[in-house]
């Protein structure tokens, strides 16, 4: 019984996070300007990271944690590079 309720809760959380990713992706596609797209992409990274963490809780494997950490690191680097590109027109000056 406990396991069933917990499983339902985790699945519900995964669906909610999936919808959040869809919202962020909508913003990334729609724009209207480049900064909106980058913001959407950043939110997408974050929701994806949380989704991976819930998979880790569901299966009890720590490998998902490592994937989440990598998404956090690369998402940060990517967003910073894109924001810098918007400001100056090039990433490395």
């Amino acid at each position: 019984m406990t396991a069933l309720v917990l499983a339902l809760a985790i699945t519900a959380a995964q669906i909610l996070l999936g919808i959040a990713m869809a919202c962020a992706a909508y913003r990334a596609f729609r724009g209207p300007r480049a900064q909106d797209r980058i913001l959407g992409l950043d939110a997408l990274y974050l929701a994806g990271m949380l989704l991976l963490l819930t998979y880790g809780i569901q299966t009890g494997r720590t490998i998902f944690f490592e994937a989440a950490l990598i998404i956090a690191v690369l998402g940060f680097a990517g967003t910073v590079a894109l924001a810098k590109f918007l400001m100056r027109g090039e990433v490395i000056e």
């Binding site: 519900a12 959380a13 995964q14 909610l16 996070l17 919808i19 959040a20 990713m21 919202c23 962020a24 913003r27 913001l39 959407g40 939110a43 974050l46 929701a47 949380l50 819930t54």
Partner: peptide
């Protein structure tokens, strides 16, 4: 998940 979704809706 709910809090993250609220943030994404705000987006």
């Amino acid at each position: 998940a709910v809090i993250t979704l609220v943030g994404a809706i705000g987006l």
